[in-house]
Design a protein around this nucleic acid. Structure first.
Lengths: 139, 139
DNA sequence: TTTTTAAATAAGAATAATTCTCTTTTAAGA
DNA sequence: TCTTAAAAGAGAATTATTCTTATTTAAAAA
């Protein structure tokens, strides 16, 4: 992956560019499987064997705060992170921890229209994520 | 809440009826706010001051396994539990930890029809939950 | 009703993910 | 090149949750 692309992402948000931040953001893009902090640490240690665990957590927090990545909701006790920012939904495997992205502009439009017509009293909608739970044939 | 109602829920699943299990299940129904284990412990200690924390976690696990409650997905690092089992969606507050239920049969029907027509290759759908993120006027 | 026993609970130690503290290092503007 | 605020490293601390073991109990059997 282009180093410049990663640098630009950080620069756009006015973040200081460090090798650790670049490696972590790149890991999330490369892994592209809603990795945990542990997955990310394992990945970047191939290149940066000495990166501190605390640093990874701190960088992840900073990336979330700056809107470069998002936390993924799960019913497990470890956090997962998503580098895909455009509107999309998630397929959750019932038999393993796999979470895949599901992009569907038609569905987005359907939901948007539905909630334009039907508003929820006392609540202002910011975004939808449809969690689709089931099983992958491959699992 | 009716003691008999709670007892019946446990009995239906062939679970041994104990005061702790009854108190915990009742707490989830009474609180009705997707409580954490800590919320539940606080609630039941009014009645059972000596209930062990480990017991609460064990009972919650057993209730989930037996399908009497569900885990609620969040992007926080503590688990929340839901005693409402029929199909519904969740309103997540962006500014606090409030999660409210959103029941909408019309939406359920819309989604069901949509995914009957459009199947997802390699994936067998079991259920949908729409996460609606935004802000409550009251928050 | 009493006995029996597998299952459940209490208590607290152990674990694992995450956060914090403090010292050293470094990115980037002056 | 110098300066300095911010970031990283190291490892201790914290917190939610799980595990272990002895004790108690629900509920089936006698």
């Amino acid at each position: 992956m282009e180093t410049e692309f990663i640098k630009q992402k950080l620069a756009e948000k006015g973040m200081k560019i460090t090798p650790q931040r670049m490696a972590i953001l790149e890991a999330i893009y490369e892994l592209n499987n809603h990795p945990t902090a542990e997955n990310i640490i394992e990945f970047i240690r191939k290149t940066y064997p000495n990166v501190a665990i605390g640093t990874v957590y701190k960088v992840l927090e900073t990336l979330v705060e700056n809107g470069l990545i998002k936390k993924v909701t799960t019913d497990r006790d470890f956090m997962r992170y998503d580098g895909v920012l455009d509107n999309h939904h998630h397929l959750y495997c019932s038999t393993c921890d796999l979470i895949e992205d599901y992009h569907d502009a038609e569905l987005d439009e359907l939901l948007k229209k539905y909630f334009e017509a039907k508003n929820i009293p006392g609540f202002k909608i910011e975004e939808f994520v449809l969690q689709i739970k089931g099983t992958f044939n491959k699992c």
